[in-house]
Amino acid sequence: MRIAGLPLLAGLDRRAVTLLALLLIGLLFVPAVAGPYLLSIMILVLYFAYVGQAWNVMMGMAGQLSLGHSLYVGLGAYVAAALFVHAGIGPWIGALAAMAVATLAGAVIGYLAFRFRVGGVYFALLTIAFAEFTRIGFDHMTWLGGSAGLFLPVAQRERNDLWSLRGDPVMFYYVILGMAVTALALCRHLARSRIGFYWRAIREDPVAAEALGIDVFRYKMLAAMASSAMTAPAGVFFAFYYNNLFPEQIFSMLRSIELILGPIIGGLGTLFGPVLGAFVLTILAEALQEALQTLGWQIPGIKQVFYGFCLLLVIVFLPNGIWPPLARRLGLDVR
C-alpha cells in the first residue's frame, strides 16, 4: 500500500508512515513529560542525529571518509557566535553565513583532495589535518577569544526569544527536533533523486561510475559541499545552546569521531541509521553514567570507553550497523 499525494512521503508504505508518525508525535510530547535532565539528553540525541545525518551524506552516500567534520561544526559555531557577539547579528542570519563559510571550506578541501586524487585513508588524514590546523589557528585568534574561549551573553529567561535563540531548553529542544526532521527529509529527498544515485555509484566504484557518464569530480564536490553546509547549523545550535566555545573542544578530533559514531552504529548510508545510532548510543551511555553515579563511582573516561566498545562490537559483528537487521525484522525498507 503506497501513499500518494504527499511528495515527502512518496514511496513509503503505510506501515512506515504510521511508525514515523508515532515517533514524531512521541518526540513532540517529550518536553511535556520529561524533566530537565531527560530533556538535556534528548537534545543531545537529536543533535547527534542531525550532525550524523550531515556526515552520512559524505561517507554513507558518496563514500568519502571524513574524520574532520568537527571543522564544519566549529566554523559554523564561530561564524554565528562572532556575528552575534561582535555585530549583534542574530543566529538565523548567522546560520546562513555559517553555512556559506563551511561550504567554502568543504569546497576548498574537496577541490584539493579530488583534484590531486587524494583518496581513502589519505583523504581521511587530509580532513583531520585541516581540522587540526584550523583548531590551532583559532587558538591564536584573540578577537575570537583564542584558547580562552568565546562566550555568548547568557539569556534572560523571562521570555523565549526564538529569533535570537535565547531561551529555555524546551525551545532548544524544538529547534533541534526541527533540524533533525528537516535533515532526515532532505537526505531522503537527495537519496531518491539523481544526485543520490550518482553518489552511491561513486561510493561503490568510481571508475565504473565514470564509464556511465557520471562526472565523478563534480558529484564528489557536491557531496563535500552539501555535507559541510548541512553540518554548519549544528555548530550554530551548539554555540547558542552551550553559550561558550573553545577551539580545543569544538574542533577536536574526538568531536569528529563522536559525530560519526551514530551513523556507523546505526548503519552507514541508510537514512534512519544515524537517527537510531544517536538514540541507542547516547541513551545507553547516559544510562551507564547514571548507573555508575548511583553506585557512587565517578570515573572520567568511562563513557568514551563505552563508546569505543560499542563501535568495536558493531564494526566486528554488524558491519552494516544495527538498522538494516532491525528494519528487516520490522518489515521496513532498509534505506
Binding site: 531518491r192 533523486s193 539523481r194 544515485f197 550518482y198 552511491r200 555509484a201 561510493r203 561503490e204 566504484d205 571508475v207 565504473a208 561510475a209 556511465l212 557518464g213 557520471i214 548510508g269
Partner: peptide
C-alpha cells in the same frame, strides 16, 4: 566486471539510465 555491489540490479541499471533520462 565492476558492478555496484551494494546496490540492487535495478539501481545499477537506473544509475546508467539517468544520463539520458530526465528524472529517476
Amino acid at each position: 566486471v565492476r558492478p555496484f555491489a551494494g546496490l540492487t540490479v535495478e539501481e545499477n541499471v537506473t544509475a546508467g539510465a539517468l544520463m539520458r533520462e530526465p528524472d529517476v
